[in-house]
Amino acid sequence: MAKNKLVIPEARQALEQFKTEVAHEFGVNDPRSLASNHTGYIVRKLVEMGEKQLINNNKNN
């Protein structure tokens, strides 16, 4: 499996933590064992988190 370079290399730890949290939501102990069909769920979760951040930022301004 090829590793993609992150735009911000320091984000690797946060990304790995996120993958671990999503894996636990699926009841999987090892995030590397998540199948590619879970990718859509992960992307939706990331978009949802981003939307919430934007809404909260706009409320505070």
Rank of each mutant, 00 (worst) to 15 (best):
A23D: 02
N4G: 10
F26T: 00
H38W: 01
V43D: 06
N29Y: 04
I42N: 02
I8F: 14
I55V: 13
A35N: 07
F18R: 02
M49P: 00
E48K: 09
V47I: 14
E21C: 01
V43P: 02
N56Y: 05
K5D: 15
V7C: 01
V7E: 08
N60P: 00
I55T: 11
E51N: 13
E21S: 05
N56L: 09
A2V: 14
V7Q: 10
N56I: 02
H24L: 12
E51I: 12
R32H: 03
N29M: 06
F26Q: 10
A2I: 14
V28M: 05
L15M: 12
K45E: 14
S33C: 02
A23S: 12
K19A: 10
L6Y: 12
N61C: 07
E25W: 06
G27D: 11
N37Y: 07
N58A: 11
I8G: 07
G27L: 09
V47H: 13
E10V: 13
Q13I: 14
F18I: 04
E16A: 08
V28H: 02
E16D: 15
N29P: 06
E10C: 08
K3N: 09
V7P: 04
K45D: 10
V22W: 04
Y41Q: 00
K19T: 03
K5Y: 10
Q53H: 12
N57M: 08
K19H: 01
Q53T: 08
N56E: 13
T39M: 11
N29I: 07
I55L: 09
N60I: 05
N57Q: 13
N58I: 01
L6I: 06
M1L: 11
I55D: 14
M1V: 15
H24G: 01
K52N: 06
N29T: 13
N61V: 12
D30E: 10
Q53V: 11
S36C: 02
S33W: 02
T20C: 02
A2K: 11
P9C: 05
K5A: 15
D30T: 02
A2N: 12
Q53N: 09
K5M: 11
G50P: 06
E25C: 04
V22Q: 05
L6E: 06
L54G: 05
L34S: 02
N4T: 13
K5Q: 15
I55P: 00
M1N: 09
K19L: 09
R12V: 04
A2S: 14
V28P: 00
K19D: 03
R12H: 07
Q53E: 13
H38C: 03
S33E: 08
T39D: 14
P31G: 05
I55K: 09
L46N: 07
M49A: 07
R12I: 01
K59E: 15
K3A: 11
M49H: 03
G40P: 03
E48C: 01
N58D: 04
A23W: 03
L54D: 09
F26R: 14
F18E: 05
F26G: 03
V28R: 02
P9I: 10
L54M: 11
K45P: 01
S33Q: 07
N61R: 10
E21N: 07
H38N: 07
P9W: 03
Q17G: 09
A11D: 13
V43G: 00
E16Y: 06
K52I: 00
K45T: 01
N56F: 03
L34I: 05
N29L: 06
